[in-house]
């Protein structure tokens, strides 16, 4: 596969089937280093499945995935993560029986383990001081510092999403794959997440791939948009280009996608 040096993540001809049903029918795309790509499409288009293949949760039947110039098609999920892929889930997943702080600590310690530096001698059972401080700083940045001693199970839906994002950021990823980061949130909270993602991109130069049904979020964040339908890419381009695309308009029943998604 020929990948330009400015590309951080790319796929070519990805095919995924669940039993007899082909859910991804040869998906190719690429994400530029530091840019933000939004993947949109109707329910069941295969957006989440695409995320699963990219991160290694689901194996593809055919096709290749390259990440930072290396072929990672056969690389297991945990290794892709330690290479710099950070992921959140459509329905947030956190460790329910741990506290919010412990959740983030597990992520930080995992990153340090993979980097070969715990910051504390092996016999110390408590997390190192700088690990706890880093966890608290992340919780603070996500606006849930006051909940750090609460068990993750007791958090509200939105706070769980924030915690999940804090955990993922703790991995210091070079690319973030966010599956509907603002789903189920109140409009005010959505803009807070949008601002947060903008800040992260500005501060760390992180690339982002996200799916989203909220067009406001996409207009604010995405550099480019990939439109999927029935497991195929039907359009790719800037927000404006995609909005004018006749195929995309047809998929969204002739309406403007902005209105259709609401």
């Amino acid at each position: 596969m020929n990948v330009s040096p400015n590309t951080i993540l790319a796929s070519e001809g990805l095919r995924v089937s669940y039993g007899p049903i082909e859910v991804l029918k040869g998906v190719s795309f690429s994400v530029g280093n530091g840019s933000c790509l939004a993947v949109i499409g109707p329910n069941g288009a295969g957006k989440t499945t695409l995320f699963k293949v990219l991160t290694g949760e689901v194996a593809s039947r055919a096709g290749t995935i390259s990440f930072q110039g290396a072929d990672v098609t056969k690389v297991p999920a945990h290794t892709r993560t330690s290479l710099g892929m950070g992921r959140t889930f459509q329905v947030s997943r956190v460790f329910l029986e741990l506290t919010a702080r412990e959740n983030v600590i597990v992520a930080i310690e995992s990153r340090r383990r993979n980097a070969g530096d715990y910051g504390a001698p092996w016999w110390r059972w408590r997390p190192a001081r700088q690990v706890v401080e880093e966890a608290d700083a992340l919780l603070f940045a996500l606006g849930i510092a006051h909940l750090r001693h609460a068990s993750a199970a007791s958090l509200s839906h939105g706070d769980k999403k924030r915690l999940e994002l804090a955990e993922t950021l703790a991995l210091e990823p070079s690319i973030l794959l966010l599956d509907e980061p603002t789903a189920g949130m109140a409009p005010g909270d959505r803009m807070q997440i949008v601002e947060l993602i903008q800040t992260i991109r500005a501060e760390r130069g992180v690339s982002v791939v996200m799916t989203e049904h909220d067009m406001d979020v996409i207009f604010n964040l995405a550099d480019r948009v990939l439109v999927m339908n029935y497991g195929e890419v039907i359009a790719e381009g800037t927000v404006a280009e995609v909005r004018e695309n006749p195929t995309v308009r047809a998929v969204y029943l002739g309406q403007d996608i902005y209105n259709a998604a609401h």
Partner: peptide
């Protein structure tokens, strides 16, 4: 109670999530 124990607990609660934190489950 060590960091290894924290990994064990994370795996019990959600093994997939643990893998996506870079843990070799």
């Amino acid at each position: 109670h060590s960091r290894t124990g924290r990994v064990f607990q994370a795996i019990r609660q959600d093994a997939d999530r643990a893998a996506f934190l870079g843990i070799n489950v």
